[in-house]
Structures are given as C-alpha cells and as structure tokens.
Design a protein around this nucleic acid. Structure first.
Lengths: 243, 243
DNA sequence: CGAGCGCTTGATCAGCATCAACTCAAGTGG
DNA sequence: CCACTTGAGTTGATGCTGATCAAGCGCTCG
C-alpha cells in the first residue's frame, strides 16, 4: 500500500507547495496546529467530484498534487468552467458566505487534496492572528487572479493572458521551468475563456507558427514570453513590481 | 456648516447600509469598537480620486453614500473599468496582499466614505472573531459578485446580467424599489462590460422597445424582471435559493 | 484492433466593433 | 443673452473577428 503510506506522510511541513498555501510564513507552532486540523486527505481519481454545486460547505480543500476544474451548468446544459486549481490553491472560498457551494469541482487528473474543516479552521484563525492574516492574503490574491483572466477583450488577448497566467503560476510552483503540463483539454480552456474551441485552436496554431510557444500533446514550452505577454492584455511586469 | 455636522453624525449604528457592510450581525460592543476605528470620514466631490493605482494600501474604504468606479489604464491609455461600488460596499480588499493598490478608484458623484485603517482593522479582527467572520463573508461575496459579471458571453447576456446585478444590489439597499439611478455613464458601463458603447446603446434600445425596461436620463425602471433575467446568463433565482 | 474522444482544419455566416454623422443638453465666455 | 464648445447619447453603414457547421485526423484505451 504505497499510496496510503504516502498520504499519511502528508503535512504542511513537507508540502512542496506550502509557500503558496495557508502554511506560508507561519511559525512552527501555528503550522503544526494547522497540520493537526488537516487530518483527512482525499485522493480522488481523474474526473471524480470533490463536491457538487449547492451542497453544504463543510470543508475547504487545498490542492496537494494534481489539479481541478470548477464549473456550473447553465440553463442549456452547457458546462461553464469558472476556474482551474493547482497545487497550493485553496478551493471553496467564494462559497463561505452562504455555506452552500456556488460551483461544482472535479479533478482533471489523479489528485491529492487536503481537507480543511471550515468551522474548525475559522476557530483556528481566531486564536492565531498569523493564520487569519495569511488567509486574508490568499483571498485577496484569489480576487486578483479571478479578475485578471476576464480583462482581455479579443480572443487572442484572452488566450495569451491565460497562457501567461498558467506559466506564472507554474513557475511559482517551481515546476520544470519551461516544460508546462496542461492537465485540462483544449475544450476546457476555451470554455473557461468564453471562446469557441476552434478559435482557441487556431490561435494556438498561430502562436506555434510564430515560435511564441511550442506545444506537443499537453506539454507547452514558452519560447518567447515577451511576445506572449505583449499579445495579452495584462501587464505582468507591473504585477511583479507590486510584490 | 451643515455638511460637517452630518459627517460627524456618521456611525455604523445609524448607517442605512450597515446591514451590508462590516457592521452587519455584530453585537453592540464589537460594533462600537469598529465605530471607534472609523474616525475619518472623506467626502470627495464628483470625479475626485479616492486613491491611485500603485499607491500603498493604508486604508480600506466603505461607501456610506454615493458611488465609485474602479479602473486601470492599459498600455494604449484606455481606461478599463473593473468595478462599481455602492453604499455598503468595501473598497480595496483585492489589494491587501501586496499592500499596493492594483487599481485606481474615483467617485461617480458626491460621495461619503468611511476610512478604515487597515492595520488597526486587522488587529481588531484578531480580538473580535465576529468581525473576522463578517469580513471573510464580505470577501466571499465580493468573489461571487466579481465572477458573475464576467459569465455572459454575448453582448445581450452581459448587459442583462449587469442590469440584474445593479437592480439586485439596489434592492438590497432598499432604494426606491423600482426607480434605479445609474450614476455612471453608458460609456462607463460598456467599458466595464467589454463591449462597444454603440452596442450597449443598441441593446438598451431593444430592451426599451420590448418594454423590458424604461430609461430616462440616468433613471431606470425595470418593467419585466423575468424577461430581463431570462435574457441574461446568471440564474438569480438559483442565487437567491442559496441564501 | 476498432471505437471514440480530442484535436485540426477549412468554409460560411452573424454578431459586434468601428467609423461617421447627428441630436440634445449643459456649460462657458464674450 | 446668444454663439460656441463640449460631452453624452442616438442612429445607420460597413467590415472584421470569431462562432458555427462540417469533415477528417490521430491518439488512447477498452
């Protein structure tokens, strides 16, 4: 039972993405209290649901490894993807206020999630100001991230902003610097961006033929990040300057 | 000095929008501590800036009366509006994490703002769990609101979602039920929605001629809210069911 | 090995941006 | 007090971006 053994070993102390998650910048006492809270670890297979829309919010989830998509179904039965989550990301924050999930979330690949019981977590934040401040920072960053994606108007802007966003996030996670694995389908991405997937594919083709990116199967390599950024709407240099 | 007298009287106890703001659901002790924090009240004239992009975040602001727009300037010098704020709304949350403003904010009319010193507020949340929980709920609601606006794909969907959003928010503030005052220009709205203002104007014309809304100067009256909702993307009935 | 899903590509068409001209109301200054 | 300016809103003509339709390709997995 290799898998079980690995799961038992999971803790914020050893998590490779803890610098992005709640545990970042905590002293060891706060970190171990946080760890004590996250006893349940889930390991849903590819395509499995983490929760469904309208279910009560009992837990938040932190992605330990793998990735998830967040979506709802519109009146015509279309899936509308609202977010992708990667290691270190926190899932469910936007639904805290009404304690019912506003979206469904399912995994894009084999995924390991840390289960964070919401009520206990809220209590923990009351006794540990450092955790509270960290959580507020995470919420603030989520707002920034959510807003940035929607800024582009043309399809090309949106695609380039998305690719820049993914690249930036993957670099923060210090994955294989230039080889970026995209776990979602092109259909998922175009859906997320609100454009037709044929259009998305066409723009990818252009970017490839202009040597801006290289793409094989689901692995992307950014060849000219300056060009990629300039074809998008978001000024990532500016964003970096804020930090 | 009528104005000064009015401003001195401002407090969460008497604020007509406190049920939407931080003060909601607080016991009177927490509420008065919060009140003690909000000693500075600003009254910027129409078009005045509350803060500029990239400035340090010293305060959050709560709208007491009036309204604001949030925006940034893109590389071509175009104003890109990212949000509108009305009484009870909290301004600046998304910029907490890097302590520099990600956007500029200016007023759309004569406006009264409550100044909330950020550091002191973070301290206050540590000693008052009820305030912390309330703030987290507000952040969660802001995420919901931000995400809903961008969901529409076609221009008509976006316009109808926007009008529904404004209507809903105004009803929460229990303003003159059916006469809704839009403080921003049509250009501001179309900019916010990412569509041309001629297109926006055209869609308004259609909605007017179909007796879905009535519009004179900047005052709107929704005649057929069911039709308005059905032409948008967001299911407001569903959203209500979550509460 | 065959079925099916995800990706690729091209042809056609509609929705919306762009350009342009005009109205109307509110200042502004001589 | 009127001529001029300015900005917001209105309307129509034109063209491009990107959606839709259609068909073929090539993985991957049962």
């Amino acid at each position: 039972m290799l898998k079980a053994r690995i799961l038992e070993q999971i803790s914020c102390q050893t998590c490779p993405s803890s610098h992005l998650c709640i545990a970042a910048d905590l002293d060891s006492e706060a970190k171990s209290e946080l760890d004590a809270l996250i006893t349940k670890v889930r390991n849903p297979a590819k395509g499995a649901h983490v929760f469904h829309i309208q279910e009560p919010v009992k837990n938040l989830y932190a992605v330990y490894s793998g990735s998830c998509k967040e979506y709802w179904i519109d009146e015509n039965g279309n899936e509308c993807i609202t977010n992708f989550y990667f290691p270190g990301d926190l899932i469910g924050i936007e639904s805290i206020s009404n304690r019912k999930h506003l979206f469904s979330v399912s995994t894009l690949e084999d995924t390991v999630l840390c289960t964070i019981p919401l009520d206990a977590f809220l209590e923990l934040m009351q006794t540990h100001g450092s955790i509270m401040k960290r959580f507020i920072n995470i919420a603030s960053q989520k707002m920034q991230n959510d807003q940035c994606i929607t800024m582009g108007v043309t399809a090309t802007e949106r695609v380039c902003d998305f690719l820049m966003n993914i690249t930036t996030r993957m670099l923060e996670r210090s994955y294989n610097e230039d080889e970026i694995h995209l776990p979602m389908s092109q259909l998922d991405i175009s859906n997320y961006l609100g454009i037709a997937y044929e259009t998305f594919n066409l723009i990818l083709k252009k970017l490839k033929s202009n040597d801006v990116i290289k793409l094989k199967n689901k692995t992307m390599r950014v060849l000219d990040i300056t060009e990629l950024e300039s074809q998008g709407r978001i000024d990532y240099e500016f964003k970096k300057s804020l930090k």
